[in-house]
Design a binder for these strands. Structure first.
Lengths: 347, 347
DNA sequence: AATATTTAAGATAACGTTTACTCAATGTTC
DNA sequence: GAACATTGAGTAAACGTTATCTTAAATATT
């Protein structure tokens, strides 16, 4: 089983290695009896073609890389499944790596994947290796998900939800229910998702006349991790004049914030309202159902799979952007503020 | 960047390809100035060694496969991280595949991984390809996690929690609180986890004089999926004489069961008590905190990483088994039954 | 029947590495 | 200073495939 090569098969079947190869790949006519003999030898010796050798010769590994920021976020495992679902039919398979949002890890994995000669890459970047990635994109089929690369040298596709719109919708929802003092727990402002979601927040606020500038009191810049969600909630709730609601910019930080609230006896939504960007698993089983805007990991993954395959087949396609509209799903995490309160709040 | 080979570096540095190889691998003395020239050429041409070619020559890919039943179960992503944490330091990396508990998918992935010439495999098997796996184990370093392979030809290691004990503890806990009519939602009885956990259930029950045989009324044999947890809860609660408690044999089915309860207005623990095998993420944020026995994915993953490395280095080591003792963590999902009720129950 | 054409299958070079052999050019020994 | 050991770096074979080139046999053409 181990170490059986095409030569062993050839010898056993009494044919040349070329013939064996032809049988395996089924790409040239081989007479029925010889074919039969070869197939039997393969069966008997438990032969599995060495795809390392194959890849070397063919200059193709039939492997697509998927580099994500956090493999334990269900959002990305769902996306990975969706990608695999598409590429599997075309004979490709996926190798998933997790950067934990560390610049060095991303760089290390990128180099590893280059070395491994993957045929294409789907990337959720840390946003800290833009130059490297842009230059890589000139030689490697590349599809970005959720996070942009800022460089005009970049060549590839980009799939995302409309972050500005999504965050804008979340805030608008709070505003429509009377909230005015609204806290925000940001993700990293170095990556497009973090940046744009915050932009959506600022935009919505400014439309009701509230300017969000550097010294906005209810703002915490986190890093998309559970801990930073917890810290952000703690920080914002420590203000003497507390906000009535908080916007959290991703699913994981939302869990962190809720943990802070729950373990500190802060009731949602009576003491604080909360809305969040991104899907939450088994949300029906939570003690409170956050109002969220969702992004469909499965749809994005499928699209990413399709696009990377297209790019592998035709390296010359021009840059494309696909932006999905996020959908607001109402939970029970927001309290309506009465208008007299409103006035007292915005004094 | 793409297509730069050792030859290009050799030419640029004015040395032979052998020398370049020696510099890259740092395994033979090369004089400082030549080394310097080679390194500069590597830098300038953006050379990345082709690990496909390397693997072919070295007969080692520095890659370990990790085949799991369900990649979207956080239990396995945590374990994957733990494995990676260990093997990364030794220069190995991980390729994770998910079988979705399908026999054919497992077989397909096994063959793929064999073809890809992985150096070792960590496997959470479906339990339906035991012969194939046993025969594979004679040539490939293999570590099983959580699920056993039944074959005396099998050669490798096995890491698990003590399933019998864990389930026994769960049931004992219920019994100690007065429960006697106890439902059970099993996983697949074809795999060791499913089988043994059920065994633990039967054992604990028999100790209080309740025989669990074929026509035990509160039993549902599921398949470790969310849907089967839901179905199981539905089925068991449809009995005219309902049980007072249910044991669910994994984390995912537990979510399914809870979804059934919650969406059907069945209160936990007042209408039904529940205990579960396995970790649940963010359990503090759930509307009810199930009492569980945990298995530590991180510990198991670390151990699996260690053991596979040992096996790769020394293929001859004999079979080993590591069994961890699961720990019961009390939640608020179980109601104490008064003794008069007890009598009425066990009539 | 002799030649031209087609075709099945064998021989071989190549993919990009690593490493056992070589072989100069030094350094060492008496 | 001659014989010998040492060493740094080059040459070439090999890993297991695929695909081009060749060749011999079979078939078609006149």
């Amino acid at each position: 089983m181990a170490g059986v090569t095409i030569r062993d098969i050839a010898k056993r079947a009494g044919v040349s290695i070329a013939t064996v190869s032809r049988v395996i790949n089924d790409n040239y006519y081989v007479s029925p009896d010889i074919k039969e003999r070869v197939l039997r030898a393969i069966e008997e010796l438990h032969y599995y073609p060495n795809s390392v050798a194959r890849s070397l010769k063919n200059d193709a590994t039939n492997t697509i890389g998927f580099l994500v920021s956090d493999i334990s976020n269900n959002y990305f495992t769902t996306m990975a499944k969706a990608v695999e679902d598409v590429i599997h039919n075309e004979g490709y398979n996926l190798i998933v790596c997790s950067t934990e949002d560390k610049k060095e890890r991303e760089l290390e994995y990128l180099k590893l994947l280059i070395s491994k000669k993957i045929d294409g890459l789907i990337l959720n970047t840390t946003g800290e290796n833009d130059d490297f990635i842009a230059s890589l994109s000139e030689h490697m089929p590349l599809v970005l998900v959720n996070r942009k690369v800022y460089s005009d040298k970049f060549k590839g596709d980009f799939i995302d939800s409309d972050n500005i719109q999504g965050a804008y919708n979340l805030v608008s929802y709070l505003l429509s229910l009377g909230h005015r003092k609204i806290g925000v727990i940001n993700g990293m402002l170095t990556v497009s998702t973090g940046k744009e979601r915050f932009k959506g927040f600022v935009k919505a606020m400014s439309e009701v006349g509230i300017e969000v500038n550097e010294d906005y009191p209810y703002r915490y810049d986190g890093d998309f991790t559970l801990e930073s969600g917890y810290q952000g909630a703690a920080k914002i709730m420590s203000a003497s004049d507390k906000p009535s609601a908080i916007v959290v910019m991703n699913n994981v930080m939302t869990m962190g914030a809720l943990k802070y609230f729950r373990s500190n006896g802060i009731d949602v939504p009576n003491d604080i309202s909360i809305v969040a960007y991104g899907n939450i698993d088994n949300i029906e089983l939570m003690y409170v159902q956050p109002t969220i805007v969702t992004l469909n990991a499965w749809v994005i993954g499928n699209k990413a799979g399709e696009m990377i395959l297209e790019r592998i087949k035709n390296k010359a396609v021009s840059n494309r952007e696909v932006i999905y509209v996020p959908q607001l799903i109402e939970g029970n995490s927001v309290k309506k503020i009465e208008s007299n309160q409103m006035y007292s709040v915005s004094h």
